[in-house]
């Protein structure tokens, strides 16, 4: 389905990305910002995997039972790399947020700015 020449799958990905961006920009809670970042990352992964799919495609595994149009294997490998990097970023950010909470008693940006 392509109204106005737009691929709805891609548009959905853009919407998801923008939801994440809004969370990242508008929320003052650091955890919510991190959640927004993760939503944005998910949108990027969904975009790459969507681009790699083909009409009626099988998973790119060459065993009996799979046949000719295969989904492209490169996006899957790239997304796997991206997920690992996203997990790493999330882990370090969460550890920093725990530290911030331990030292200042809050993770709200508004309140952190007012601290002496």
């Amino acid at each position: 389905m392509q109204p106005f020449g737009l691929d709805l799958d891609y548009v959905a990905v853009v919407v998801l990305f923008c939801v994440g961006l809004y969370m990242l920009v508008a929320k003052s809670n650091l955890l919510k910002k991190l959640l927004g970042l993760n939503v944005m990352e998910t949108a990027v992964f969904a975009f790459i995997v969507t681009a790699g799919m083909v009409e009626g495609g099988d998973p790119p595994i060459m065993v009996a039972g799979t046949s000719a149009p295969f989904a492209s294997p490169i996006p899957h490998a790239m997304v796997l790399t991206g997920i690992v990097v996203a997990v790493s970023v999330t882990a370090v950010a969460l550890a920093l947020i725990v530290q911030i909470h331990a030292h200042f008693g809050t993770i709200e940006i508004d309140e952190l700015k007012e601290l002496p």
């Binding site: 548009v11 681009a51 083909v54």
Partner: peptide, 20 residues
């Protein structure tokens, strides 16, 4: 951010086209 993204996405080939 959304407008350039949508504009860019509009120029992509359909996501399941075998000749992409």
């Amino acid at each position: 951010v959304a407008l350039p993204l949508v504009a860019g996405v509009a120029t992509l080939p359909p996501h399941d086209a075998p000749d992409a």
